[in-house]
Design a protein around this nucleic acid. Structure first.
Lengths: 222, 222
DNA sequence: TGGCAAACGGACAAGGTGTCCACTTAGCTT
DNA sequence: AAGCTAAGTGGACACCTTGTCCGTTTGCCA
């Protein structure tokens, strides 16, 4: 998605999880892809920075390409060169924030990382995602363009992770359950619960933890 | 939503559930609201009929007000008089299909209606909703305009129903769980599972049934 | 320093939205 | 049964967004 995929940063969110500690942006050069020019890099940074602010200060769903371009001080066509639509900008932004969590799921200490029972790991995952949503809700809402959400690299990562947990627990037919287990993390749902119903993040988190443990109760998945 | 609310048909989906058997459209006159004129009624019917076809034969998210108006053979402004946007047309259409299920949940035989254990009722509800999605997916997708989905009368009804089940089961803090339990029924999720992943309705239904029973296991909710 | 490919951004055409307003018509009134 | 009045209609208008084209500028390498 966005143009990361086309240009070499590759399936970034899925595999670029190295550097659990080294959080600095690792060098972005690729062996094959022609390097990005310096001005392009600079513009990209301006765009991302300006867009992050835009998404935060107005309805994320109403941000237009024109607004982003103007805020970033570049022409619209320049913006189109990097991103096909506003939501892909939000996806790129969100991606950076999600990468840390992805690393923790693979290499981190339990219960997020390997080593804890599946139910506990799922509960921990829910809480971590909730924290992510709480902190970056505008971006998550801006990224959510209907069906495109499921084609995101990040969503693919969460799927792989949850599938691992389900299989680990010995669930019978795990595949349909993957997305069912992920569905409570929908950004729009979170917004509704949090700001329409006025539920605290703690209550939602508590329910999700209960939910996770009940779903993957110790004693085998059958 | 739509203009049903403004014009007297009231919170139709939530309370107009009488007639579990009498499926014919009950008389639509209201004591207070000024009656709709005959030509307006006729146009409304044409609009709904034309729109249902449109939603079915192209990407439901791409249907525009102009297209609906043209297909219905009315002017755009006439359409705007009845519906503020395409998704509200889909909501109105879907509403009619949902009303039968709503009746069955309240007055029907178990396990859909009262009388069965909460877990069984939830499982039955999931299967019924899945069936609805399978048959009217285009409308469901057309109706799904982001956060507006949660403000739908129908969604409110499902919330009330699920809350009843949760309370009935003795769940500790039911409110945050309501929407979590409803989240697997998102039309976009269903579409993804069904047509992107290629899962059969049966497999999805099976997982949802397992899911429901595990969530509301017999033996009390705590 | 010169040249070239990459990147930029102003401009254009197409199409959607929501509203206004002059005209038509249904349905009550006498 | 004809007239009146307000509800209903639909063509048209102004505004905004989108996606692309293309002449110009700029980084980078030889």
């Amino acid at each position: 998605m966005s143009d990361d995929e086309q240009r070499g940063r590759g399936a970034a969110s899925v595999h670029r999880v190295g550097g659990l500690l080294g959080d600095l942006q690792s060098a972005d050069d690729q062996p094959v892809a022609p390097r990005r020019r310096a001005d392009a890099e600079r513009n990209r940074a301006q765009i991302l920075s300006a867009a992050e602010q835009l998404f935060a200060e107005q309805d994320p769903r109403s941000v237009t390409m024109g607004e982003i371009a103007k805020a970033a001080g570049v022409g619209r066509a320049t913006l189109y060169r990097s991103f096909p639509d506003p939501s892909s900008v939000a996806v790129a932004l969100l991606d950076e924030h999600e990468r840390r969590l992805q690393g923790q799921l693979i290499y981190g200490p339990p219960p997020l990382g390997p080593g804890a029972p599946a139910g506990e790991r799922l509960a921990a995952f829910y809480l971590a995602m909730l924290d992510l949503l709480e902190r970056h809700l505008p971006l998550a809402l801006g990224a959510e363009t209907g069906p495109a959400r499921f084609r995101t690299g990040a969503y693919g990562f969460w799927r792989v992770h949850v599938r691992t947990l389900l299989v680990d627990h010995g669930v019978e037919d795990p595949d349909p359950l993957i997305d069912i287990a992920l569905s409570p993390l929908s950004p729009e749902l979170f917004q509704f619960q949090r700001h329409q119903l006025g539920l605290s993040a703690e209550r939602i988190g508590g329910s999700l933890a209960v939910f996770a443990r009940r779903l993957l109760e110790s004693g085998g998945g059958r």
